[in-house]
Design a protein around this nucleic acid. Structure first.
Lengths: 209, 209
DNA sequence: TGCATACAATGAACAGTGTTCATTATATTT
DNA sequence: AAATATAATGAACACTGTTCATTGTATGCA
């Protein structure tokens, strides 16, 4: 019965075809202009066909969201070779920020938009997110065990660091840092530099010396 | 020429009528179900009428957004009497978090949704946001001048604190903290407690003793 | 091979959305 | 009372996500 296996493979291939097209269009045209009709036209299928592979648009967003997490995980993976856990932790943060600035739409998908999370069937772990968080967690844990970090617990430290970096990035992506335009911040400081300098400061708060 | 003054007043009243209805419906029914037709029906006007008072839906979101900022500013104002700047700073954070949990939809409007920011005509200062940020800034400044805080500059400290708290709150509102459900965090720690404890920890990092 | 079956794909139709604009009603000014 | 300026209308437009009866095609059996 090799047929049903081929069928299954074709089903996956078709899913991938749709996801690839969706991501391509999403990155090129943005959130607003990503329509099911547009995707269907792009892959030369009828609009209804997409519903044979995805329950609804949110489910498609969920698949795109997983794809995006794999991209970030790839970036993180290159840091695994760094022996010094403190240095690895620092690089983790800067890599995260750089990823967000290089791929603002993907960042949206991963951490800001509601759609991908609506599509999880019955709270199935959200593995992709946990994989990425796990990377941060083990690094913090290593630093914490070696008494290199201030803070109450591994997860609270990891959570705090993640939150701060996410907060900075998402405020920037949503234009809430415009308040710094007319006032305060030194003129030669653009937002990206403000964020990187603040993260540097954050590390100094956490790291014992 | 009292007529044009009355006309202007009526225009403002009508605007307010629309904004009030929109906020009421937004809080009751949520983002998805807030439609211009629905608002029009609610105030017993034709859909097109709204466009005599707002350029588009984003402009309406902007007005709602300003209304929300006034609510948060009111909450902040009650803290002005606290003499000890460190205590005031701490209370500011907890008030912010509490506001977000009590009014998640308003928080969305203020700090997460793109719509209100799209509607600003030619980058007009975003005063409401600056007023609220100003409250944080002066408090941090007072602490900083009295050498009570670690950190490089007033704005970097204020920005970092704001970002961390916003990060925690927005990750929670967007269900990204579900990764903590199956693992890690002590069972009796719900998300709100995790956040509050982490903020407490953050203060300990910043405050010199 | 021919036929019944299962499945994939279709695209028209549905119920919505934000937005526009010629038309109508109302209020003000002459 | 007539002319004018303003406010409000609601049908129409161009979309959206989603559904489903219909059509086409490939598979399994006789």
């Amino acid at each position: 019965m090799g047929v049903i296996q081929r069928r299954e493979r074709e089903k996956l291939e078709m899913r991938q075809l749709i996801v690839d097209a969706a991501i391509k269009m999403y990155l090129e045209e943005g959130y607003e202009k990503l329509t099911l009709r547009g995707i269907a036209k792009h892959i030369e299928y009828a609009p209804g066909t997409i519903y044979l592979y995805f329950k609804d648009k949110d489910a498609l967003f969920h698949a795109m969201h997983e794809w995006a997490f794999e991209r970030l995980f790839e970036k993180f993976s290159t840091l695994a070779t760094i022996k010094d856990p403190i240095l690895r932790l620092k690089e983790l943060g800067f890599t995260y920020i750089q990823f967000a600035f290089d791929n603002p739409e993907l960042y949206d998908l991963m951490f800001i938009l509601t759609e991908p999370m609506c599509a999880r069937d019955n709270h199935e772990g959200w593995e992709c997110g946990f994989k990425v968080y796990g990377f941060l967690r083990v690094t913090v844990e290593e630093c914490f065990n070696k008494k290199l970090l201030r803070g109450d617990s591994v997860d609270m430290i990891a959570f705090s660091m993640w939150s701060m970096v996410h907060g900075m990035v998402s405020l920037q992506l949503r234009n809430r840092l415009d308040i710094y335009d007319k006032i305060n911040v030194p003129k030669d400081f653009d937002k990206e530099n403000l964020i990187k300098a603040s993260v540097e400061m954050m590390y100094n708060l956490f790291i014992l010396k």
